[in-house]
């Protein structure tokens, strides 16, 4: 999809299907005691609205014959950076529970800065350390918020 028109036709078709799917899901919602406002009401209205808007968007874009703006997609390198950055974020979330917030923060921040600016590994490690320490001292120790500490750090602190 290189232009807004192409994207709108694709998105319109997708939304129309999504609307139908929501309508189907809404029809399967279990209604217990009859109430003035059924739990199916809003999902059904929205399913229909999304379906109608999807069809409308696809049709309007299909008929459109004017100047079609291009979508600013990233180049190959930019797309690679986005994908790797998202992968690192996913790893950060996945590791937060087993490793704890401080350690996973240190790893995520260090790896991210190191990846975005390979010449600055020193800065990466320093920033990672600072944020890892802040996450423990401010949010876990001082504010007593229930962030995961991680068994490794727990053992280290107990020792």
């Amino acid at each position: 999809m290189k232009t807004i028109r192409q994207a709108d036709i694709g998105a319109g078709c997708f939304l129309a299907l999504l609307g139908l799917f929501i309508l189907y899901a809404a029809s399967n919602i279990r209604v217990g005691v009859e109430r003035a406002l059924s739990p199916r009401f809003f999902p059904s209205v929205l399913g229909f609205l999304i379906f109608a808007c999807g069809i409308g968007l696809a049709f309007k874009s299909w008929r459109f014959r004017g100047e079609d703006p291009r979508i600013h997609w990233p180049d190959r390198q930019g797309a690679g950076i986005v994908v790797v950055s998202l992968g690192m974020l996913a790893a950060y979330i996945a590791l937060m529970k087993p490793l704890g917030l401080p350690l996973s923060t240190f790893l995520y921040v260090t790896a991210s800065i190191g990846f975005l600016k390979p010449q600055k590994w020193g800065t990466a490690i320093a920033t990672g350390l600072i944020l890892g320490i802040i996450s423990y001292v401010v949010f876990i120790d001082l504010l007593q918020l229930s962030f995961p500490v991680g068994s490794l750090l727990e053992r280290l602190l107990e020792g």
């Binding site: 950055s85 995520y108 991210s112 800065i113 920033t127 944020l131 996450s135 949010f139």
Partner: peptide, 17 residues
């Protein structure tokens, strides 16, 4: 390259909390 990971860090903190 420093601010981006910091934004993500604070976003994760804010959302998790």
């Amino acid at each position: 390259y420093i601010l981006g990971p910091m934004i993500v860090f604070f976003s994760v903190l804010g959302t998790y909390s």
